[in-house]
């Protein structure tokens, strides 16, 4: 389908309504993630960080900035997007979206676009906030933005999938808490994987978040655990996989259209 055929009015309506929803809950959706991420900067960056030796020539406080932003980006993208589609399913108001003259692409653009936008706004706020506590530099700003955007979109797609798969609030929380957060903590946010014993280094490479954090950190300081090109390839791979699953969902009507 070409851009010309897109029903932009519908996409815009859905997108703006989703954005308005998070403005209504600004404390929960913006203030709280910014504060909780900032706490890490205060504790690990400014307080403890000064007593920890440099990693690859970067002060510890600065070293953890990219990983923490990634952590926040992943969890927020997933939770925003999953809640965005889960809530209308839960309340029943999804009937209106499904009976509207909208294609699947347009529905995804509206929901995932809004969720990714929110995460990116949060990412920008946290990036600025971090500067208050920790000095850092960005060597490759364009690549940084690219990593940020690709990650926000990919994980918003993942959230969208979870929001459709979940049949209760418990499942909605399950993946972010049990999968995303552990993977991020073990994904080299707080350490370089060189610091691990060889066996655990190998295990860690099976963790997709390692590639995200490593690539993102490279865009800041030019240091990385794996080549930035590998990181980029991995993100694109996740993106492709997420798109495939979303396409399958709409093709089969899974949990949306009996």
């Amino acid at each position: 389908m070409s851009i010309k055929n897109l029903n932009l009015q519908s996409v815009k309506t859905l997108y703006l309504a989703e954005m308005a929803r998070s403005l209504r809950t600004v404390l929960q959706s913006i203030v709280s993630p910014v504060i909780s991420t900032s706490l890490y900067f205060v504790v690990f960056g400014a307080a403890i960080g000064t007593r920890i030796s440099e990693v690859d020539g970067v002060s510890y406080g600065a070293f953890i900035v990219p990983g923490l932003i990634m952590l926040m980006l992943l969890t927020q993208s997933v939770s925003n997007a999953s809640f965005g589609i889960f809530f209308p399913r839960f309340s029943g108001s999804i009937y209106e979206i499904l009976s509207a003259p909208m294609s699947y692409v347009e529905i995804v653009l509206g929901y995932v676009g809004a969720a990714a936008t929110k995460s990116l706004i949060l990412g920008a706020i946290v990036l600025v906030t971090a500067r208050l506590f920790v000095p850092y530099s960005i060597d490759h700003p364009a690549m940084m933005v690219l990593f940020l955007v690709l990650t926000a979109v990919t994980f918003s797609l993942l959230g969208f999938i979870i929001g459709i798969w979940a049949d209760g609030f418990e499942k909605l929380q399950l993946v972010p808490l049990l999968v995303i957060t552990p993977l991020t903590f073990l994904g080299g946010t707080f350490y370089s994987i060189d610091m691990l014993p060889p066996f655990w280094q190998a295990v860690t490479l099976a963790n997709p978040v390692v590639y995200l954090v490593s690539g993102f950190r490279w865009s800041f300081y030019g240091i990385s655990d794996v080549s930035p090109l590998v990181s980029l390839a991995m993100i694109l791979l996740f993106l492709g996989a997420a798109l495939a699953v979303v396409a399958w969902i709409f093709k089969t009507g899974y949990r949306l259209k009996p």
């Binding site: 029903n7 009015q9 519908s10 815009k12 309506t13 859905l14 309504a17 308005a20 209106e96 979206i97 509207a100 003259p101 909208m102």
Partner: peptide, 15 residues
Amino acid sequence: TTVWDTVSFSRGLFG
């Protein structure tokens, strides 16, 4: 949402 917003939303959703 308000009555006005939700009704306007529906119109937009239908393009």
